[in-house]
Design a protein around this nucleic acid. Structure first.
Lengths: 336, 336
DNA sequence: GTGAAAGCGCTAACAC
DNA sequence: GTGTTAGCGCTTTCAC
């Protein structure tokens, strides 16, 4: 049906080897021959079949990015960062979303196992450390945004503990003394580390950490409303809330509005990630910026280097990139 | 390095043909043989190389979804719809974003040309009708969300003209008589069609359409603010604004807030798409819902059918799925 | 029920 | 500078 390299060779009156050379810009091919080949390609509308090429070369130059959910524009920003680095270096980036379903994740990981892609970047995973360590021996895998405890796999993240500490410190600077925490289950390393940072800041500056000010459920949007309901039901509700994601912060803000609270005055809310929605919201949302572009760039740079390296020489390090606290309208000085 | 089907055959003491049969669950293989093969697979940690398989079978069972931008969570919802239909039918879905750059789009389309994927769904494209028609003869292509005028390519969209008409009709029902339109350049078929619907509603119910109430720029977020600035500079500003996207509507709402206007009272704003942000915003955003799941499901169903069909029997039809106007807090009765 | 062998489209020795 | 040819890993006809 569609033309092959052989057809091109016949059409040009040359051998497939020469056609292949032209296709790959290798040296040792006369101008004349190249011209003939290009004409034949044009005439036949030929496009090389990469299945053949990839099979032969044992590489695809494609990297797969797996996201737990596609709702977060945050993830797509990282993908953009990955792409901007990888594309000029000859790698195509494709992505897929597992909807936080481990079954789908496994299925998509098959693209790695069956050699459809050269490597995978996981922006969150349901694999445990042991499995990841085993897979990492045979395949090129990297974690980004969300690490896995004890996994000796290339990982690039922000320093979640320190970032949360910095964020909560800002709230304390604004005069807040009762600060709530909205987190996901501790099976998420990032949520867990952020909780540690929150607790360290409270311990260091206020001297005490109260269990009742921590609401732990999941990253789901709806949890934000439930968290605020819970907090407002306390004898002494918090005057500020630190959330492990912007989405949760936005849910809290929405709920606060429904309860008649003025966000930034009656209650301060801080998120995490700096998704684009933070600037679109009314009020705008204070948050901790994760440098998405940088995260993507760093992780794919190291992954590509691993792909090119011999098995023994792989970089399975744990790297952090700098974060930044951004204050907007959703946080303010504590009400006297 | 990694095991091949030959290694498995040797290990099992059988031929590669038998191993292949086991791999593909074909009939005519004894229990005993299957057992041996599975043991060998287990022992060697074998995973079939799909480059070989796909080359041989001349199909990959992968469909590529190309998005113009990854910022819209809207697109990812469509991908989810596509995936939910395709996955159970043996197709993997991968996606890539061109950042509205035709150069990147072309590069990504290479995955179609070089047989890395069986088909492509374009959620917006910079290709013109002529090119699409030509490509569509050789390859399996579908358009979703955003059609291309005169393209005889499988297309699944909402009826943009009618949807805009319905939305504007609602604004008129709320008493609005001066209604602004914020659109993208008419090179976008959807924006163009929505403008037609806006004009039809105005013509039909109010008798006149005023050029000065149409602000046409692009889908970029920043255009929303400029549009409102423009409108408020008019001698008689509109009391309601219909935007061709929710993102633009949110930008308008944000700007209105900055100008001290109360959205839903002083000015009504209607968007288009029903992205998840509409419900998160304060105020919540009235909009036209595009049934993302349905769009994705329908387009991939027809595309898969085309992939399986002979060249002549392809469905290049134009299909619409039903839309729905959703009124929320950003629209209200006109202020007396 | 099983195996031998051809060949999918391509690249890369190797020979000339 | 060009051509011949062996295979990359797999499926599938055709014998048996």
């Amino acid at each position: 049906m569609s033309a092959t390299i052989k057809d091109v060779a016949n059409e040009a009156g040359l051998s497939v080897a020469t056609v292949s050379r032209v296709l790959n810009n290798s040296a040792n091919v006369s101008e004349e021959a190249a011209e003939k080949v290009n004409q034949a390609i044009e005439k036949l509308g030929y496009s090389p079949n990469f299945l053949g090429r990839n099979l032969r070369k044992r590489e695809t130059n494609v990297i797969l990015v797996l996201m737990p959910t596609s709702e977060h524009s945050f993830y797509m920003k990282i993908v953009a960062g990955i792409q901007s680095f990888a594309q000029p270096r000859g790698y195509d980036i494709i992505c897929a979303s597992s909807n936080s379903t481990s079954e789908i994740e496994v299925r998509q990981m098959n693209m790695l196992f069956n050699r459809t892609v050269d490597g995978v970047i996981l922006l969150g995973t349901s694999y445990d450390a042991e499995t990841l360590n085993k897979l990492s021996k045979t395949y090129n895998i990297a974690l980004c945004c969300e690490g896995v405890e004890n996994a000796e796999v290339l990982t690039v993240v922000v320093d979640d503990e320190q970032a949360a500490y910095d964020a909560v410190k800002e709230l304390i600077r604004l005069g807040h003394r009762r600060i709530g925490f909205v987190g996901a289950n501790d099976s998420s390393a990032s949520s867990c580390n952020r909780r540690q940072g929150y607790m360290r800041a409270l311990g260091e500056f206020l001297g005490e950490v109260s269990e009742e000010l921590m609401y732990i459920e999941s990253f789901e949007y709806d949890c934000g409303a439930r968290a605020l309901d819970y907090f407002m039901g306390l004898d002494e509700p918090p005057t500020a809330v630190f959330c492990v994601s912007d989405l949760l912060a936005i849910a809290v803000i929405h709920k606060a509005h429904d309860l008649g609270l003025k966000v930034g005055e009656d209650i301060s809310v801080m998120g995490f990630d700096n998704i684009s929605m933070c600037e679109m919201m009314l009020p705008t949302v204070s948050t901790v910026e994760q440098p998405c572009g940088k995260l993507g760039e760093v992780v794919v740079r190291k992954l590509i280097s691993n792909i090119g390296a011999s098995t023994g020489a792989k970089d399975n390090g744990y790297y952090t990139v700098p974060h930044r606290v951004i204050l907007r309208d959703s946080t303010g000085y504590v009400k006297k």
